[in-house]
Computed example of a mutant assay.
Amino acid sequence: MKPLFTLLALILIFPATASSTDLVRGKQDTVIIELNNNSKIVIITKSREDLASLENYDINQMVRDLNDQLSDSVEYMEIQDGKAYVNEDEVEMKDWKISDDEVRIKLGGVEVDVDPDEMDDWDEDDWGDRKKVTYEAERVDKTTHHFNIDIGLNNWLEDGSFPEGNSPYTVKSFGSWYVGLNSTNRTWVGGPLFLEWGVGISWYNWKLQDPDYIIEEGANEIEFNLAPAGQNGKKSKLTASYINVTVVPMFDFSKGRRKITSIESGGIRIKKYSRKGFRFGVGGYAGYRIGSHTKFKYKEDGDREKDKERDNFFLENFRYGIRAQIGWKGVELFANYDLNDVFSANRGPINADGENANLSAISFGITL
């Protein structure tokens, strides 16, 4: 295995009488650790990145070996074989590379790798012998990719406020779900600034407050009509799906640092990534409608019935708007606001003033 940490002079231990000239030689690549007993540990590396991977080495074992071999007559000692102190289990877990036969699943902050060949011999007893390593990733990759899910509630606003409760197109606050499946890239721009961009599919579900109203496409506009006598409404909703492109500049004050917990058992390896610190961002999105339908569930003569219709329902094909994201450690929240109307011009439902209502979609929730 190629070592992660290159030591030019692995560890030099000097007595208190060592000259300062010897200690500062090559000082630009040197770390000097003052010990309580007036001795010093000097670590010389090629780069700061090499120094960060020192955590892969068993320093305690180095010290034990030095204590065993060092005598009063020895003033200088150098360990030549640094590879002997590499913690192989930890290095393998951090640097595990997926092969052509393995399967990787990434969802939000969890990554699961499965080796089918090793899984054939795996059983639940092997889980008791699992290996677990927790460490922090300080290095920031230029661009990383992940898959996440937006889950929340959606509604629509009429001239900046929610429709009145007695309006036939008033949406039920709880139960009108918004779901988004997103393939997202995160590119480091510099300092705390990142750019999150990607594509995804989302679903609006507008569930009516009064389930006795049926959503229908009329001759000139979308209509919300009372169900025929004898039909006792249980659920009435309009669903629209979109394919979207999103770009959000993010300020991440932890500068991308993450806490990583890696667990391995047989052919299964699970990595959990936990972000650190506070982050927020505001950006935009644009989408194209790829489907829409209505669903009306009701009881008639004691029997449960369901009517489902697919059409465009005068919905705008394009949507665009503003997206805000805010996060703290492992929690990520989002809010979307469409700047255009849900329905085409002069095709919205008739409001109390006898005019076509201008309805804008809004959604908010949590990102997994």
Results as ranks from 00 to 15, higher is better:
V86H: 10
D65Y: 02
E88R: 10
D89M: 14
M93W: 03
V103C: 02
E55K: 11
M119L: 15
D126K: 08
D141T: 06
T45M: 10
T45N: 06
N37S: 04
W96N: 11
Y85V: 03
D117T: 10
V31N: 14
I79L: 14
D113C: 04
L107F: 08
L66D: 00
D50S: 06
G108E: 07
V91M: 13
S39P: 02
R139A: 13
A84H: 10
T144W: 01
P116S: 01
V110G: 05
E111H: 01
L70M: 09
G82C: 10
T30C: 08
D72Q: 07
Q80D: 11
I105P: 01
L66Q: 01
E92N: 15
D100R: 12
I33P: 01
M77E: 02
G82R: 09
K106P: 07
N60T: 04
V91Q: 13
V31A: 13
D141V: 00
K46G: 08
K106I: 10
E136Q: 11
K131Y: 01
Y85I: 11
K131L: 09
N87E: 11
R139S: 14
E92R: 13
G108V: 08
V103Y: 08
V91R: 13
I43N: 02
D89I: 13
E136K: 11
D141K: 14
E49H: 11
E90I: 10
T30K: 15
K97W: 03
F147D: 01
E111C: 11
W96E: 10
F147Y: 12
Q80M: 06
V86Y: 05
I43Y: 02
W122N: 15
V114D: 00
